[in-house]
Design a protein around this nucleic acid. Sequence first.
RNA 1: UGGGCCGUCGCCAAGCGGUAAGGCACCAGGUUUUGAUCCUGGCAUUCGGAGGUUCGAAUCCUCCCGGCCCAGCCA
Length: 479
Amino acid sequence: MHAIEKDVHWLGFEWSGLYHASDYFEQLYDYAVELIKKGLAYVDDLSAEQIREYRGTLKQPGKNSPHRDRSVEENLDLFRRMRDGEFADGARVLRAKIDMAAPNINMRDPALYRIKRTHHHRTGDDWVIYPMYDFTHCISDAIEHITHSLCTLEFEDHRPLYDWVLDNITAPSHPRQIEFARLQLKYTVTSKRKLHQLGAAKHVDSWDDPRMPTISGLRRRGYTPESIRDFCDRIGVTKKDSFIEMAVLENSIREDLNEHALRVMGVLKPLKVTIENYPGNQVEEMEAQNHPQHPEMGTRKVPFSKTLYIERDDFMEDAPKKFFRLSVGREVRLRYAYYITCTDVIKDDNGDVIELICSYDPETKGGSSPDGRKVKGTIHWVSAKHAIDAQVNLYDRLFTHPNPGGTDNFLGHLNPDSLQVLTHCKLEPSLADADPDKHYQFERTAYFVLDNHTDAAHPVFNRTVTLRDTWAKIDKQNR
RNA sequence: UGGGCCGUCGCCAAGCGGUAAGGCACCAGGUUUUGAUCCUGGCAUUCGGAGGUUCGAAUCCUCCCGGCCCAGCCA
């Protein structure tokens, strides 16, 4: 309950009052008595299984309970004694007397009250009988003078009952129930029951696991309240049962983060680079912009030295012409630093590249050359001896099936690679005191946020969403 | 003939009798010290289908097809 309040607050909403149906238990009881007195409700002694049998099927009408025609006096007495705890749990229920042959099953004398000795978080042990949803909700809405009671599609069949109850008691008002489709996303599940199962079976860490499409999960993943509200504005509200593509959600957060995230450099999969002609002890402070489109967001200094780390993906031995990054003999720009040319490659015994030897052009400090020559690629880097070590969590869709919830075994469609943990990522030193409330763009890779369960000594960054990657698309097409 | 609801571009979604908005995605260009961002252009002769009414239909009528929900003393 408090978690919900917290989520709603975080999303940016306030409420004028907090109401609980349990505040109306006494009134609800009185309305039930009113129905009994009108001959519109009765106490039934049938067991749950018997009631099910008597209910009939979707295509066949039900039949009346043998207790359906008890006198008002007897019903009043029995209901009173239900409340007083004279009967065992499940022994009797109060039912509305409507129509056992109704085509809408919800109208076949639905249960209004059942006996259930359970501790209530607000009313404690005051009650042993509790009202059913269909009886409680409409009356609570009426008491609160709600004008429109919004709910999801599966309650469409309940609306006749909602109206029946209010039509047959002296209701303080008669709200209108309107049903809408629930928000569903592809490649994930949104039902509370299924989300709970994911946690219970340890497929995710918790309710706020960054892979969960919960408010707390999205928050920990790095989504902002603004982006979620924008997403909701875009998708609209209708009665059509639909599934939204993740791309829409991702677009909303990218749009927000592109505008507000601080740009930094972080190397996820480091490859060592030695600048052979750079003085061994020299360190230069390069000036970098915090946001190229917003100079007012300032600049920062990033240390540069002889030994650096660059992204493994930014080097390719047999690079195609369209590959604008580093390869032996090719020149690239190190963002905010120098142009470098790869001169040699060092491999380990397995033949894997473990280090690059490069030379830099001292005339290109800051990233531009006096002779105006062009370099196609600009890559990010971090100085080896200044870098901080961090863990980075890369998240992907939770399921491999577009509608896992619609299959007979949704857990069978889990994406085994929904979380990829990267350790010893090398980040620029300014990130040593990263702000947990700020969002960062590791330039050229993705948006990240400090995990809110992290501790300062061992920073963990969660990937919110990747940047659009045209190269990945081209690369994929070429294979 | 159980009942209820829904069908407009790949995914969402306006439209409510006057001749198909918009977003996402996608495609093609341009700018760019992020292959990001940004900018420009393209993307439904057609609204699940077939008839009908009308000068005119996605919008009204009829029939058909497809999808979702309901047999908790859960919500």
